[in-house]
């Protein structure tokens, strides 16, 4: 208790720095997925896998500092939830990238997937901005709203895409399954980013 009282908030600052690093890894992974979609260059897939592994290490580091005594016990579960959501999103980016290696996308489908991937990346960038505001104690409303608008845009795109999916010929069941899963993962990334933003908003409210 006295260590915490007289400490220079070192643990808290370390947690926040590492959480930002975690988010930056997610942004890099999202950008790599965009590039992989554009170029089909396998090095981007390898980079995504490497980023995901690094993300796991960062996540473990954050949690160990968090439960050593950073922040009030009151907000630790919410911070933990935030970190877990970012980790889940990273996993999803990796899963989507792995599937992309095996599925073949027609040009219109590739264009739609590319657009969704770009929007995902912009969502993550907005999430980082929201996180910086959260740390400074600034108002989050507009940033959270922007993230929600992105998510809605992606949902609309997917809805339109989904209606055309059944007309797309596939070679076999696994190709079809892979294609469906890839698109589903791509859209789910935006759902998780939105959930992450919501957690941030809730922590901000609870401390107000």
């Amino acid at each position: 208790m006295f260590k915490r009282l007289f400490s220079s908030e070192k643990h808290e600052r370390v947690v926040l720095q590492e959480m930002r690093k975690h988010l930056e890894l997610l942004e890099r992974a999202s950008q790599c997925l965009v590039n992989f979609l554009k170029t089909s260059d396998r090095t981007f897939l390898d980079e995504i896998c490497e980023i995901e592994r690094e993300g796991d290490i960062v996540r473990r580091d954050i949690l160990s500092v968090l439960y050593k005594g950073a922040f009030l016990p009151y907000i630790r579960p919410s911070l933990y939830r935030f970190i877990e959501l970012v980790d889940e999103t990273l996993d999803l980016v990796e899963d989507a990238a792995r599937l992309l290696e095996f599925v073949s996308l027609s040009q219109p489908l590739q264009d739609d997937a590319f657009q969704i991937a770009i929007l995902n990346t912009e969502m993550v960038q907005m999430l980082i901005i929201a996180f910086d505001s959260f740390v400074e104690g600034d108002d989050l409303k507009e940033k959270i709203l922007a993230i929600r608008l992105y998510e809605k845009r992606i949902d609309d795109l997917y809805h339109d895409l989904f209606s055309r999916l059944f007309d797309i010929p596939v070679e076999n069941f696994w190709q079809g399954r892979g294609l469906a899963d890839f698109l589903s993962f791509l859209v789910k990334i935006s759902d998780l980013v939105e959930d992450t933003a919501d957690v941030l908003s809730l922590i901000h409210l609870s401390l107000s």
């Binding site: 908030e9 808290e12 926040l16 922040f71 009030l72 400074e136 104690g137 401390l207």
Partner: peptide, 17 residues
């Protein structure tokens, strides 16, 4: 406490104290 102290770290410390 709440309106003057904005940053997360400072507010966390203030609530603890």
């Amino acid at each position: 406490l709440v309106d003057r102290v904005k940053s997360l770290v400072a507010r966390n410390r203030l609530f603890f104290i």
